[in-house]
Design a protein around this nucleic acid. Structure first.
Lengths: 266, 266
DNA sequence: ACGTTATTCG
DNA sequence: CGAATAACGT
């Protein structure tokens, strides 16, 4: 028997990136299964209330080193994984490894000097794999804006109601919420990317859209804000919204949420 | 009928100022009525426990633009108003507007670029107008000190008792509290304004005063500290204290509080 | 889990 | 000033 058969081993230069990914999904998912293949680590799961869908992709190119000898599923508690990642130093790199036979995954944090190593082992779990199809890829309207702007407006409008109506026309997008204490309207205009590309607001519009969503979920999605300076809102009337946080060179987090049906429309 | 009759419209360059004003009074007042006239916006109201009196004055000169076509009363929930103001960016300006006939007031926040507008509408309410007379304007003793100093000493003395005895003689003022764990005495001397005017401590004294107040209210008053670098304590024996936070060029917040009658004096 | 605050950093 | 963190309280 060989000393050790490593089925999967991947190294990231910045453990903080993985930490942000976990922080962005742990409240939504609880436990989940990572699919590890040659092309990268990914996960896809309904949230615990079975309303929103979460998709994370971390491509093999996003790692400093990546080896996956055979496809495997790592079922893991995200709360535990978050606890482990809190033990990583700000500048630490991380190695994630498991062999296909073992029932554990190991995280090794190290700094560049190599004078400190911290190693944590988590038990893996078997989780029912519910492979749900991802909604369409063709949208009537795609809005790109600073992720901080999206986080802020969702938070602000939550003061006024549980849901937000998003309506987008050629040059601008409106977000509106109403409730007992009053109403809130936020209007964003297209904005060039001239000097500061991260502040760009762009609207690609095939057709005007008008959709309503539960702010509770959007606020949860906004926990991915530290991962990306920009966010893309992809919408078609009567279809699920896709909120995408691109991780340049690495992959993305995408959240999907079905619109509310407005029965009280007049 | 004209398209829109705007009875009242006022613009401030810094929404943050209005926000601080609201933060300084909302815990005391709950709901209140703003009196809008040609000369500015003001309010006067007893606190919800009917012990302290609050007076806010925001002069028309303090606004970047101010138009009030006819006097009107805006009854408003300060908790709601605080929520709205939390939606203002740090650098946003704000327009407050209502027409005399409408039952709502609108706050519009804008940045200088103009690519983002946030508009919030609050319902107005009818509140009983209890116009209580403001206590005398002639005081035996007026102390001016840094507002941060006042906030700190009230907080510190709250550790020892529920009330503070303030006694002022020609050159100094003493603040004293006592309770189960011990006693606290804070003495402040007159201090010149030479280099740093905000650190000045001045005492104008017609007659020595010695008065006792509930710290609970003084600590509430101290929430106005961010509005003004200095505070004025105006006192006469057996008369209500006036705690004034001047807002240079804009107006002021004044709090009034009756002294405790000391029956257990020995 | 969330909001708020205090604090630090860039 | 804004962002990020930590700590706290509800």
């Amino acid at each position: 028997m060989p000393a050790s058969t490593v089925g999967f081993e991947a190294k990231m230069d910045h453990a903080s990136l993985l930490k942000k990914v976990i922080e962005a999904i742990k409240d939504l998912l609880g436990d989940c299964t990572w699919d590890c293949t040659n092309t990268g680590m990914s996960l896809q799961s309904m949230d615990s209330s079975h309303v929103a869908l979460v998709n994370v992709m971390m491509k093999s190119e996003g790692f400093a080193r990546y080896k996956c000898e055979r496809n495997l599923n790592m079922g893991i508690s995200l709360a535990s994984m978050a606890k482990v990642l809190k033990c990583a130093g700000q500048e630490d790199n991380v190695i994630i490894k498991t062999d296909g036979d073992s029932s554990t995954v190991t995280f090794v944090f190290g700094n560049d000097d190599g004078d400190r190593t911290a190693e944590f082992e988590l038990k893996l779990m078997n989780i029912d794999v519910e492979h749900l199809g991802i909604p369409e890829t063709d949208y009537d309207c795609i809005i790109k804006m600073p992720s901080g702007e999206f986080k802020r407006l969702c938070g602000d409008l939550s003061q006024f109601g549980d849901s937000v109506a998003i309506s987008c026309t050629k040059g601008e997008v409106r977000f509106e919420a109403q409730g007992d204490i009053g109403t809130g309207h936020i209007r964003l205009s297209k904005k060039g990317s001239a000097d500061k590309p991260d502040e760009e607001i762009s609207i690609e519009l095939e057709q005007p859209v008008s959709l309503t969503f539960a702010l509770k979920y959007l606020n949860n999605f906004a926990k991915a804000t530290p991962l990306s300076a920009t966010v893309r809102l992809c919408m078609s009337n009567n279809h699920p919204l896709c909120v995408e946080y691109p991780m340049p060179e690495v992959g993305h987090i995408r959240y999907y949420l079905a619109p509310k049906i407005e029965e009280e429309a007049d």
